[in-house]
Write a protein that binds this DNA or RNA. Structure first.
Lengths: 205, 205
DNA sequence: AATATATTTGAACACTGTTTAATAAACCAA
DNA sequence: TTGGTTTATTAAACAGTGTTCAAATATATT
């Protein structure tokens, strides 16, 4: 069945060509300015062709969002080297913030944009990417609790709180709501308030 | 000058008629589905007329965003009755979360959407609405610090951290990222993690 | 009444995501 | 090689978007 194999290969090739062009345009100009016609132009196909490989725009951006989680996962991998749970939690926060700063549009797509969630809703799928990342955080928080951090607190609540705090800092910056802060630039305030958050947890000990 | 007075009056009347229709449509269907043509239809004028009263769509939604801050301000007003600073901080968080839950699209516009910030950028204006709200929070945090909370922390960093934590919880819920949490519904987790955050601050004392 | 000003309009421009009928290409069996 | 079938690709169309602008209408002033 070598022929149908090649056909299959050609099909996935054009599919990934579309995806590659979409990602390039997306990283250059964001989701709103990346239109189906732009993507079609970039790969020199008609707009209609794209709908033979993807059911809609949301599905394309869901796949790009997944690539974002792969990149974040890669960066998180070094955390295995950090033995101390609380040090690991701190390092995790720093990696998360660094990722957000260096991939603003990607972070936006992963944690703010409707598109990937709309796709999951339509397909009746779970948010596996978010789930896996949250699981890693939960595990680290649990280890911290076993060492006496977050005394008398509930694991799930603390984990979500930690995520929320960092996500909040990052998104207020991303969406230009940090102008109201004195004495710090928008980029600075994210870092100093993260340190303040860490200090708050540490001082409990 | 009675005639020009009446003309002035009529002009502001149509202006606020546009605004009223825009707000109604916005609260019913969100910003994306509220088009200039929708608004024009609702008030039975042509689309072009709207551009004699507003320079663009962003300016309309900046004004609606301001109304949102007025509503939030009204709700915050009862905080004057809460003497204890930390109780006031807790109450403030609860009001903020309640507002976000009861006015999801408005919260989105106020703290997430690009439109009002794009308008301020174009007009070279300050974000007065956000500034005023942040000032109230800063003042409350300062009072808390004077009572021994947030020991050895910087005021600005702590204030932004508190805002970020609550904003993070609210927006992760708003943008449907809470599915990953176990044992709690998306709505529940916001409340329990807020309690966890309060506990974290309290336990320092 | 004629002129000047202000307001309103509808059409146009350049876009958007998506669907579809028609066409072209590739494949397979006789 | 031919004929039939499947697959891939396209252009055009649909219904929408924000915005601009010349022209038409309405109002006010001289």
């Amino acid at each position: 069945m070598g022929i149908s194999d090649r056909k299959e290969r050609e099909k996935t090739e054009l599919r990934s060509l579309i995806l590659k062009a979409a990602k390039k345009l997306f990283l250059e100009q964001g989701i709103e300015k990346t239109s189906i016609r732009n993507i079609a132009d970039a790969i020199e196909y008609s707009p209609g062709t794209i709908y033979h490989y993807f059911q809609d725009k949301d599905s394309i951006f869901h796949e790009i969002h997944t690539e974002g989680f792969q990149e974040l996962g890669k960066r998180m991998a070094i955390l295995h080297e950090v033995e101390n749970p609380f040090e690991r939690l701190k390092a995790m926060g720093k990696i998360y913030i660094k990722f957000a700063f260096e991939n603003t549009d990607m972070y936006d797509l992963m944690f703010l944009k409707q598109a990937p969630m709309d796709f999951l809703e339509k397909m009746d799928c779970e948010w596996d990417e978010g789930q896996a990342t949250f699981d890693v955080l939960r595990h680290t928080v649990q280890s911290c609790m076993e060492q006496g951090y977050f005394k008398d607190q509930e694991l799930e609540a603390v984990t979500f709180m930690v995520w929320s705090a960092v996500h909040g800092m990052v998104t207020l910056n991303l969406r230009h709501r940090c102008k109201v802060v004195n004495a710090h630039t928008p980029d600075e305030i994210v870092h100093v308030s993260f340190q303040a958050f860490i200090k708050l947890i540490e001082q409990q000990q």
